[in-house]
Amino acid sequence: MPGWLLTVWAAVVAMVVVFTFLTIMVMFSVWMERKVAGFIQHRVGPMRAGGFHGWAQSIADSIKLLFKEDLILIGADRKLFQIAPALVMATATAMFVVLPFAPGWQVADADLGVFLILALASVTTIGVIMAGWGSYNKWSVYGAMREAAQVASYEIPLALSLIPPILHYGTFSLATATEAQAGWGGMQWYVFSSAAPVAWLSFPLFFIAALAENKRAPFDLPEAESELVAGFHTEYTGIRFSFFFLEEYAAMFVMGAVGAALWFGGWNFPGIHLLEPGSALLQVLALFAFVAKAMALVFVMMWVRWTVPRLRIDQVMTLGYKYLTPLSMAVVLIAAFWEFGLHLIQD
């Protein structure tokens, strides 16, 4: 087999694996979101489809979405309208490439993994703005403009709040950072490490900024159902709409996974040092630990969504510019001095 064919083959396999995982994970997340929403409001959520607690509800929903008519308004900017969901979906899928699911189970160990995720997350925003602008709908334009206004206020805190763990581990690679947290029987996570106070300061900032990045409540102004119909995806139907839906939950998982990998030890779990490195059991348990940690953070995002009401746009800007940005800068400074102090002690 020639070299280039091998590369293409590997890419196809990786694509299929990532896309399958993403689809199943998103279906599970949607079901989980509805269940969490239900239980918080003393309801039960979906109960019919599939038998046990409506586990097949998402499958039924996605089949329904696939069979829906694909509509494009006459006045819409067809090119923007058609490219936007594809762009959003492509970036959301591409973010999965650098996630370290288990030792060695990573599509590409990019040296700048964290940076790549930040960059792709920003491209998603462009897709949202394209969708809103191309829809020929005033609500969509409002949603897109809100997203554009919002993006600047949280991108900086998001990037800055990722610096403390990067400083601590001296790498942008998620896999390397995860391996560095394997000590103490798999419990030397960043939040328990020698830089724990900095970790606990930076994680809330990261989490809030990640909520805003994913357009999740209380920062879901671009889609704000009660004000803007459905914001930027008002005019989307069928599979194009499902792309935006997939993107939202995929991005949630990615942000949860980044949080898990940098702060909560990624695939490490207590007792990982007892297992033989590279054994099947370790790989599976590591995969389970990683996905469980990421899903736990996704659960917190859902919990926040069903607790906190949506902010006004000026409140989002105030939070972003006046509070998150200065605080994340302060945390970066504290982290820098902390790491410097750690070096002095160790040397």
Binding site: V36, F39, I40, Q41, H42, V44, W303, V304, T307
Partner: peptide, 28 residues
């Protein structure tokens, strides 16, 4: 302001977490 925001958010989150474990009032 930061502290009061954290306080009120934490209060709300605790409330919804308590509600999460309550018995649903709906009927199948």
């Amino acid at each position: 302001d930061i502290l009061s925001t954290i306080h009120s958010t934490a209060k709300g989150m605790a409330l919804t977490m308590r509600y999460l474990w309550r018995k649903p009032v709906t009927m199948d």
